[in-house]
Design a protein around this nucleic acid. Structure first.
Length: 221
DNA sequence: GCCCAGGTGGGTA
DNA sequence: TACCCACATGGG
């Protein structure tokens, strides 16, 4: 099988890695914060930033906004881009407070497309961050696309040229039942695959569950 | 020293 | 629309 289907890839990854139990966070608000902090940054560094926020008792919209911007920037420094991420975090918290009295679950309740539109209006929140928040904090059935899923899709051979965000999202969505738990698990498995095997920029193909189905394997990478 | 990491926004042609 | 670049830290 040289070009596995969307479903086949999912089953292979689940069989190889097991459930991933994402998102690693204690609350929907922590998911939202993590989604911004992880932008172009290793998760390990995000964990440091979140730990610092916890120590500062700043893991609520009100508490985070109460911090001076410079203090907030200092706390999240390990996650990089701390000046712009500090602005993004404050903007998100401001929206949560004014539109839902700081109640994250309430703010995320409602039609997916409307909440997504609102998220995309906020500074520092693009399609991936918005969809991560919708799926992992709000339990909305929306498929998250990231750099990993793009590389994976291309190396499997689903696309000849790099697909646009919406194009790849559509590719997954039409092939799967609209199910938040499924989308959650699938995206987490793709990230795990990329980190562990042949689909990162530094290919290590030994033991890759897609070994017979990705270009890296066929070209000996 | 160099490349990379669970992106986003602004500028230019 | 399609590129290019700034943003910044920490690990390999």
């Amino acid at each position: 099988m040289s070009r596995p289907s969307v479903i086949e890839v999912y089953h292979r990854l689940l069989a190889a890695f097991g459930p991933q139990h994402w998102w690693p966070a204690d609350s929907p608000f922590e998911v939202m914060i993590g989604a911004i902090l992880t932008q172009n940054c290793r998760w390990q560094n995000v964990e440091r930033a979140i730990a610092a926020l916890k120590t500062a008792n700043a893991l609520s919209p009100r508490a985070l906004l109460a911090l001076p911007p410079a203090t907030l920037a200092e706390l999240i420094r390990p996650a990089g881009f701390f000046n712009q991420k500090q602005r993004s975090l404050r903007g998100l918290c401001q929206a949560l407070l004014t539109e839902a009295d700081g109640d994250t679950a309430r703010w995320l309740r409602g039609p997916t497309t409307e909440i997504r539109h609102r998220l995309l209006q906020l500074r520092g929140i693009g399609p991936e961050t918005a969809d991560s928040i919708l799926l992992y904090a709000g339990n909305h059935a929306i498929f998250v696309i990231d750099a990993y899923s793009r590389r994976i899709a291309q190396r499997i051979g689903w696309f000849d040229s790099p697909p646009a965000y919406a194009q790849l999202q559509h590719h997954f969505t039409v092939a799967l039942a609209s199910n938040a738990a499924l989308f959650n698990e699938y995206h987490a498995l793709l990230v795990e695959l990329a980190k562990r095997h042949c689909l990162s920029r530094r290919p290590q193909c030994d033991g890759c569950p897609l070994h017979s189905g990705c270009q890296t394997a066929r070209t000996g990478g």
